[in-house]
Design a protein around this nucleic acid. Sequence first.
DNA 1: GATATTTAAGACAAATTTGTCTTAAATATG
DNA 2: CATATTTAAGACAAATTTGTCTTAAATATC
Lengths: 152, 152
Amino acid sequence: MLFSKACIYGIRATFYVSLYQGKREFIPINEISDALGISFHFLTKILQKLTRNSIMISYRGPKGGITLARAPEDISILEIIKAIDGEESLNSCILGLPGCGTERPCPLHDEWGPKRDALYQIFANTTLKNINEKFLIENFRISWKDNGGSTH
Amino acid sequence: MLFSKACIYGIRATFYVSLYQGKREFIPINEISDALGISFHFLTKILQKLTRNSIMISYRGPKGGITLARAPEDISILEIIKAIDGEESLNSCILGLPGCGTERPCPLHDEWGPKRDALYQIFANTTLKNINEKFLIENFRISWKDNGGSTH
DNA sequence: GATATTTAAGACAAATTTGTCTTAAATATG
DNA sequence: CATATTTAAGACAAATTTGTCTTAAATATC
Ligand code: SF4
Ligand code: SF4
């Protein structure tokens, strides 16, 4: 698993929220946790990392909830990942051989390095606006809750 | 982290052993754990997964230790990963959105799918022989022990 | 102001991963 | 056969991640 469960939940929740951007004000967390089948309190703690990192804004009380802090085109997947799993999760190597790097590559570096960089660029360049467009264009109906896993 | 620590340790240990292939009989695990700076007993348990999966052969007693079960060109990195972290670690998606897949892609699938497949192929196609050649050709001197992390 | 709704915060518990230790079994050597 | 070496196996502990619960604070509505 490249990302922690917390990170995946955070990404899913952000996708969910971003679908309502411009249509509703604040989305209550319990609605999200219900839709995604995630523990409400666990999700709350995850989302707090996003509000602390100015990715989301939260509002308490009736009609409260969370919403994006910025325009969807200004929020990348990478930001979410960094806010939840930290900087290292994508910078560090899959093998993590110590003391290595470009000037002292391990036997896999030539192959892995470019792949890792490409992966990083995907997350850096994909914004929530891109995601929303994909959702709309492809008329995507995701089953947010776990239901047997992905088929590849 | 794509792989568990156990998996990374297993890969490092296998690299270490394969460097002596054809030169020494069995490599004692305590030598490996010393060289790699890993707990001896923890490494022993990890390596047992490799012996159970016919990747390594172990031998008890003086002059005992472990060695590769097959020729280096017949052992891929992928096998090691599967033996330790299981099949799913590379088949499952980084995001793990449920119920999705090629026929029901999430907004990242078009980008992530090919990357994941390419990654899979690297590990499937890279054998210990490839690794050894790299080590020799590049006259690689790895510092097996952690010493501050990779520089990228 | 009273009440219901909703996030914030933190204590706590469960599960998983990582790491340690002890004992047993196998084997080479003298 | 006695001894030292080395893996096997499994109990146990520590650390981390995941998940639950309780209380407090903010806010809309009546
Ligand atoms: S040399 Fe590169 S591929 Fe190899 S372990 Fe280090 S960062 Fe990873
Ligand atoms: S559709 Fe593809 S990329 Fe998206 S979550 Fe599923 S497997 Fe992953």
